[in-house]
């Protein structure tokens, strides 16, 4: 049986004025139907670009696919025409975005935006667009499903009248409109108040469980991954450096970068252990370091790391590391 989503040797470059940035450098990831995968990494490591790739939302140009495949249910998304891609958007793959304030149109009522999405999805699969009233009824149903009170009144509201948490719920409701099988959530809680973050995360986890959705959750917050994802991939400068079951990674990270990330999280049980930062900063993707992209910041780097790029290999069942020095 083929996996729901298979990303194989995916390389994406951005052509900029300063040169070509190798933003994604050979990504290999697999997600089964109903599986949950967290992608963690620092800002600029390429995790959002990867998420957008799944829906062909990166602007091309400047983005350019260098190599690889992204197979969704066996067919390669990268080779799809815009028309074919539109059949998937919303109906098969949906996305929840980072900042709900900027991802909702400020001038259109919530109802209009939802109806447009619902009817647009009808058109994309070649069906007759359902009447506005039917789309509106469906929109109200979706708003109720994400726990928003008074859906009918909400449909007539504009985004500025809603709180951040409500806006994010609206965006989640819109993402569910076409009953997708894969939900891509790009930092869905980052822009929210801390108290609302937990609610929104719980909502996403509930919807994923109830509807049997596969989830790819992009975040820089290990706590979010721990709460919502069975597996986690750690990204650094456009590469996946470690992929493992979430519990394994959190308790015993093996890649030096993953170890650094975990050490940077304050330990509330042992407040005397100060969080440790990772020395240095993320490298330029236009002139990335030779060999392992992490070697300039790596405490265990050797001569080999400077010249030879480590390939990710499975060193334990279900656990793979891209490091010359990794041991089980």
């Amino acid at each position: 049986m083929t996996a729901l989503l298979e990303i194989a040797d995916y390389r994406l470059a951005f052509d900029t004025f300063d040169g070509t940035a190798q933003v994604l450098d050979g990504i290999d990831l697999t997600l089964e139907a109903g599986g949950t995968l967290g992608i963690v990494g620092e800002t600029g490591c390429g995790k959002s670009v990867l998420a957008r790739s799944l829906m062909a939302l990166n602007p091309m140009p400047p983005a350019r696919v260098v190599s690889g495949q992204i197979r969704f249910r066996g067919s390669d998304i990268l080779g799809m025409s815009d028309r074919e891609m539109r059949r998937l958007r919303g109906r098969a793959i949906s996305m929840v975005f980072q900042d709900p304030a900027s991802y909702l149109n400020p001038l259109l009522a919530i109802g209009t935006q939802m109806e447009d999405a619902i009817r647009g999805q009808d058109a994309a699969v070649g069906e007759r667009q359902r009447p506005r009233a039917a789309a509106r009824a469906r929109a109200a149903e979706l708003l109720a499903a994400v726990g928003l009170p008074e859906p009918a009144r909400l449909l007539d509201s504009h985004p500025h009248q809603l709180s951040g948490g409500m806006r994010q719920r609206v965006l989640i409701a819109m993402a569910l409109a076409g009953d997708p099988v894969l939900l891509v959530a790009d930092e869905p809680t980052t822009a929210l108040d801390v108290t609302v973050q937990a609610q929104v995360l719980a909502l996403i986890a509930r919807l994923v469980a109830e509807r049997g959705l596969a989830l790819m959750l992009i975040t820089h917050d290990l706590g979010v991954v721990a709460a919502a994802c069975a597996r986690v991939a750690v990204m650094y400068a456009g590469t996946v450096v470690e992929e493992a079951a979430t519990a394994d990674l959190l308790s015993r990270p093996l890649h030096p970068y993953a170890r650094g990330l975990i050490a940077a999280v304050p330990d509330l049980d042992h407040p005397e252990r100060r969080p440790q930062g990772i020395a240095g900063s993320i490298p330029s993707l236009i002139t990335p370091p030779r060999g392992c992209r992490f070697h300039p910041r790596c405490p265990v780097a050797t001569e080999r790391c400077r010249s030879e790029k480590p390939l990710r290999r499975e060193i334990l069942p279900g656990r793979s590391i891209a490091c010359h020095h990794a041991t089980p």
Binding site: R89, R91, M95, S102, D116, A124, G178
Partner: peptide
């Protein structure tokens, strides 16, 4: 170029609209 246009595309709104 705005985020809400990206979101509208992701949600399946028709290009014309």
């Amino acid at each position: 170029r705005m985020d809400y246009v990206t979101a509208a595309r992701a949600h399946g709104v028709t290009p014309w609209r």
